[in-house]
Design a protein around this nucleic acid. Structure first.
Lengths: 146, 146
DNA sequence: TTACACTAAATTGTATTCAATTAAAAATTT
DNA sequence: AAATTTTTAATTGAATACAATTTAGTGTAA
């Protein structure tokens, strides 16, 4: 079990358990975690193309297309074919989709307060480390194709 | 976007990208990442019950039962009903399953060498941080049920 | 001992992930 | 302009995750 194997298991398990905790806050809104992530991207920057959402979350159309159709069926998002470039599809928040933000945020802030109480643990420091790691992993992934 | 929201996205994304890199080493053996994880648990301690594998990976029978059946179909594992307690099922490595370890390990060590080259990054330190975080997250998850 | 609770695995149904392929539109090259 | 390449989503198929339920076996208490 080399350090990379340990790291992958730690990331995988921490990710799943934390998402389970977050899911507890999302269920009341009928959202799954990936659905929430897409909404969070749009709350920050609305009207993005499928492509652009994918870049921000490292997800492809195989995941995003059905997910966006689901969000559209739930009336949180409207999908629209690009006028200039008909290959593209943009996702725009509906009014209910926009309204959701403050409610979801309030619920997630309660969980954050609990996580912040973990002793001897700097969540900001960990976030910085992980942001740096991600850039390196993406670089390795792309260089592998050579 | 509070620190916990950032953390979940970082864990989720880093986890997926690192697993994609590892998958590149596993495909030649016909293994998926969760299948490899179960084998890795058994390489360390053979003959565990479904339950016990689940504790080590934080996975339940809904995930493990079909996965173990797949590993059995690939002849890497043999599942056996407990004699004393017929509710239990134990997973034992077959000879091909055991033989796989050194080959998979060799391939994963190559990836580890690349990851180790990332500058200004202590993978061991990160692993320790994540191990500690996981224990805290599990405690929060279990206390939530109160 | 018989009813009741508990435990372990399996099953069911929904929702991702992701590699690989397809289809259509746009950009580029010849 | 016609052919080729590239780009963008969508589709397809296999394999998880996981909550919720079911089934069967075990333990316990009246």
């Amino acid at each position: 079990m080399n350090p990379t194997q340990s790291l992958s298991l730690q990331l995988y398990t921490n990710s799943r358990i934390l998402i389970q905790l977050i899911q507890g806050s999302l269920t009341e809104f009928g959202l799954t975690y990936p659905q929430y992530l897409v909404l969070a991207v749009l709350w920050k920057e609305d009207g993005l193309r499928v492509n652009e959402i994918g870049q921000r979350l490292e997800l492809d159309s195989g995941t995003l297309t059905p997910l966006l159709k689901k969000l559209e069926a739930m009336n949180f998002v409207k999908r629209q074919r690009g006028e200039a470039d008909e290959r593209t599809v943009t996702a725009e928040l509906t009014y209910p989709g926009k309204s959701l933000q403050s409610k979801v945020q309030e619920s997630l802030n309660k969980l954050d307060a609990i996580i912040q109480e973990i002793p001897d643990f700097s969540i900001d420091s960990l976030n910085q480390t992980l942001a740096g790691l991600l850039e390196n992993l993406k670089a390795i992934k792309n260089s592998d194709h050579a």
